[in-house]
C-alpha cells in the first residue's frame, strides 16, 4: 500500500524542474509509504547511447574502478556517474547487451535498476525525503518521471522490493494495492522466460506488461490485457521512453487523482501531492475511471 506520484511534461520549458517538482510530490506522500521510496526519471535520450543504472550494497568497493573495468571489457567508452548507492553508466547503444553480460561477470553482486535509452531509476529503503536527498533527485531534469512511496504489505522491505520496478528497456511500473494471483502469474511468466528479483506482487505486474509488450502489444494494449489477467486491487502508473500510462482495477478502491494543464499531466494518490505544481489552481482535476486505460505520449 503506497503513495504514487507522476509527472509528464508537455511543456519542455519545465524539464529542468522535473526532479524538483517530483521530489516535492514524493515527499508529500510520505504518510502513505514510509518504508522505502523510489523514482524513475526519463531524461533526454542521447542519440546512439544507452543508460544502465546499477545499485550496490558496497558502493565504495564496487564502483571504485567500475568505469575503467567496464570500458576495458567492452573495448568502448563508458561514462559513470556515482550517486550514493547507485551508479549511472552511459555507453554506446550497440553495447547494451554486452554491458549487461560484462557487469554480471565483473561485479556479480550489482543489481540492475534500469536499462534503456533515457530511463534512470533510483530507489532505497528509508523515508522519501532522505531517499530523494541521497540521489539529489531535485537537481535532475527530464521529460517525465514517476515516484513511489511504499508501505510494505507482505513482501520484504528491501531496496529491490522498492518501486519502481523495471522489467524491460525504458519501462517502469509503480503500484498501489495488492495482487491476489501474483504467484501463479509469476510461475507462468518464468516459463515464458521472464526473470524476477523479488517476491513482490508489483514486480509481477511490471513483468507481465513487459512480456506483453515484448510480444507486440503497445503499452495501451498491455494494460488492457492486464484487466483480464491480473486479480486484485491496483492502481498502476507506468512509464515508457516517450509515454506515461495509468490504470485502475475494476473495483477502483485505491485513490487516484489526475491533473492536466497545457504544461503537464500529473498523477497523485492524493490531491495533496500536486498542490505545489505550477498552475494547479486552474488545472483540470479528475479521478481516473475504473478499468480505463489512460495514456499520454510525447
Amino acid at each position: 500500500m503506497c503513495g504514487i506520484v507522476g509527472l509528464f511534461l508537455k511543456d519542455s520549458a519545465l524539464e529542468p524542474q522535473l526532479g524538483a517538482l517530483l521530489t516535492d510530490m514524493l515527499v508529500t506522500m510520505t504518510d502513505r509509504g514510509p518504508d522505502s521510496a523510489g523514482i524513475a526519471i526519463y531524461g533526454g535520450a542521447e542519440a546512439g547511447k544507452w543508460t544502465i543504472t546499477v545499485q550496490s550494497a558496497n558502493p565504495d568497493a564496487d564502483f571504485a574502478t567500475l568505469e575503467a573495468d567496464l570500458a576495458a571489457a567492452l573495448d568502448a567508452p563508458v561514462k559513470m556517474t556515482i550517486k550514493d548507492t547507485h551508479a549511472v553508466l552511459v555507453l554506446d547503444a550497440d553495447k547494451a547487451d554486452a554491458a549487461r553480460a560484462a557487469l554480471k561477470s565483473l561485479r556479480p553482486d550489482l543489481r540492475i535498476m534500469s536499462s534503456g535509452e533515457s530511463i534512470e531509476i533510483f530507489k532505497e529503503v528509508g523515508l522519501p525525503a532522505d531517499v530523494a536527498a541521497r540521489f539529489e533527485v531535485s537537481k535532475m531534469s527530464g521529460s517525465h518521471g514517476i515516484g513511489h512511496t511504499r508501505m510494505a504489505t507482505e513482501s520484504a522491505i528491501t531496496t529491490m522490493g522498492a518501486h519502481p520496478f523495471s522489467t524491460g528497456p525504458d519501462q517502469c511500473l509503480v503500484h498501489n494495492g495488492s495482487l491476489s494471483n501474483h504467484n501463479s502469474l509469476r510461475r507462468r511468466l518464468i516459463r515464458e522466460g521472464m526473470t524476477f528479483e523479488t517476491e513482490n506482487d508489483s514486480e509481477v505486474a511490471a513483468a507481465y506488461l513487459s512480456w506483453k509488450m515484448a510480444n507486440g502489444a503497445d503499452l495501451g494494449g498491455a494494460l488492457e490485457a492486464s484487466l483480464d489477467d491480473l486479480d486484485g486491487f491496483y492502481t498502476f502508473v507506468v512509464g515508457t521512453k516517450d509515454g506515461f500510462g495509468v490504470l485502475r482495477d475494476p473495483i477502483a478502491c485505491k485513490p487516484a487523482v489526475m491533473a492536466e494543464t497545457d504544461q503537464y499531466v500529473a498523477f497523485g494518490s492524493e490531491y495533496r501531492a500536486m498542490v505545489n505544481l505550477p498552475g494547479i489552481e486552474t488545472a483540470r482535476v479528475w479521478e481516473p475511471e475504473p478499468s480505463t486505460v489512460y495514456f499520454w505520449k510525447h
Binding site: M1, D31, G33, M151, T153, N176, G177, C253, S269
Partner: peptide, 9 residues
Amino acid sequence: WTGPDDLEI
C-alpha cells in the same frame, strides 16, 4: 477507506 495507507488517515 481501503488499505493501511487510508486507515492511517
